[in-house]
Design a protein around this nucleic acid. Sequence first.
DNA 1: CTACCGATCCCCT
DNA 2: GGGGATCGGTAGA
Length: 224
Amino acid sequence: MPVDLGRLLAGPVVGAARELLGALLIRDDGRSARIGRIVEVEAYGGPEDLASHARSGRTRRNTTMFARSGLAYVYGVYGMHTCLNVVCGPEGRASAVLVRAVEPLAGVAAMREARIARALETRRSDRATPARAADRVSNLPVARLASGPGNVGAAFSIEREDDGRDLLDPAGPLRLEVGPSAGPRSATASGPRIGIGFAGPAWASRPWRFWIAGSPALSVRPAR
DNA sequence: CTACCGATCCCCT
DNA sequence: GGGGATCGGTAGA
């Protein structure tokens, strides 16, 4: 029986987040494709979730969150990063899943080029020159190319213009596909979401971050 | 190793 | 006018 990704995304966001682990993220420019396996995500609820962009209701930025599931909600942070979310739940629920880390499978060179390009157009601090940042990226291990939400955005050339795109369109330039289902499913783990201390302890402690245990592409390296 | 800090800009209050 | 669903460099323990 084929897995219906659209149906899974239309369900409650926490379940949808778990289901997105292992799915493929694809940037297809028509001639070549960048493909990676989603290995880390975070669930964001609707207006009641004080960590969610929907916490203050509908605004210009978060309009797409209130649309139907399966769309891309893209936002910019800190003046230099773009982050990709997948809208989940029933239309109007305003819940979404943030894609935090992707394990590169194909189009690795294109991912590296995209990250170098973004490094060259961005200044991170007065100590890190663009040239030095680009040099660092060219020596980065493959598994680190799309590790972290900002790096996913850079490696897959996520732009603000991608906001509202249908990720379930099989012919779309940015899309999701069901991952290879052969073999036993890898163990998954969960923990608190990252970078949302402002939401207060009750929401910040909620274990709504999910990841595939042992993946080398995780944004938070396992302690040892 | 942890802790801190800056870059930078759009959006919200 | 203020701050952020980040990232990577540096300082210090």
